[in-house]
Amino acid sequence: MILFKHELKKGCKSLAIWTLAISFFLVVCVFLYPEMKGEMENMNDMFSSMGAFTQAFGMDKINFGTWMGYYAIECGNVIGMGGAFFAAILAVTALAKEEKDRTAEFLLSHPVSRKRVITEKGMAVLVQICIMNIVVFLLSIISMVCINVEVSWKEIFLLHFAYFLVQIVLAGICFGISAFVSGNGIGLGIGVATSMYFINLVANITESAKDLKYITPFGFADGASIVAEAALNWKMVVVNLLFAIVGVAVAYGKYTKKDIR
C-alpha cells in the first residue's frame, strides 16, 4: 500500500480545498434558505412556468419553495457539479499526471507492477471521493439542524448517495481516459463532467431524447425526481456503473501495455 499512501498524501491538499469549497457553498445555500423562504414561495409559480428552463432543472416535478425542493435544486447543483468536477479531475489526472510530470519513468523502473500502480491509484481516488462526500454530508446535516427545517431524511440520504454514485461513475470513466492521456487531462475531465450534465438537461427538456438519461450519471441523480419519487432509478444506476467498470477495465488494458513517454 506504499503507492496508495503516497497518493493520499499527494492529494490531501487538493482534497481539502475541494471539500472546503463544496462544503462552504453548500452551507451558504442552506443558511440562505430561511432568508429566502418567503420569496421562494412567491417565486415558485414563476419558476414552475418557465417552459424548457423549468423542465431542465426538474422544477415542474417539485415545489421549489419547500425545503426539500430548494435543497434538491440549489444545494443539489452545488454538490452535483462540484463533486462531479472534483471526481473527474482527480481520476483523469491519476495516471496521466505521472506521465506529464515525467515521474512515471522513475516509478515504473522500480519493482512495482503496472497493475499495482493502477489498483493503488484507483483506490486512492475512491477513498478521496468517499472522504469528500462524508465531510460534505456531515456538514450539510449540521447546517440543516442549525436552521431547524423539517427534513425528509430518506430523500436527503438518497440525494447524497446519488451524487456519490455520480462521482464514482465519472471517476471510473475518467480513470479509463487517464490511461490514454500523457498531458494534463484536467480539461478533458471537466469536459466529460460538463457534457454529462448537459446531456441530462437535454434529456429533461426533450421528450424524444429521454433515453439519453441512461448514458449520463446525472440522469439518475436528478434531484427533483429523487425528491418527488423518494427513490433512485436503479436501472439507470446499473447502466452507468457499467460505464464506470468499463472505464476501469480500459485503464488496466491500456496502461499495462503503454509506452511511457
Binding site: 515521474t103 519513468e105 522513475f106 522500480h110 507492477s113
Partner: peptide, 21 residues
C-alpha cells in the same frame, strides 16, 4: 519476471524529474 529483474537494478533517467511536492 519483471519485478524480480527490477529488484536487481537501479535506473537513473537523463532528466531527474522527481516528485516535487
Amino acid at each position: 519476471n519483471p519485478l524480480e529483474c527490477k529488484r536487481r537494478f537501479a535506473y537513473i533517467p537523463d532528466n531527474p524529474d522527481l516528485y516535487k511536492y
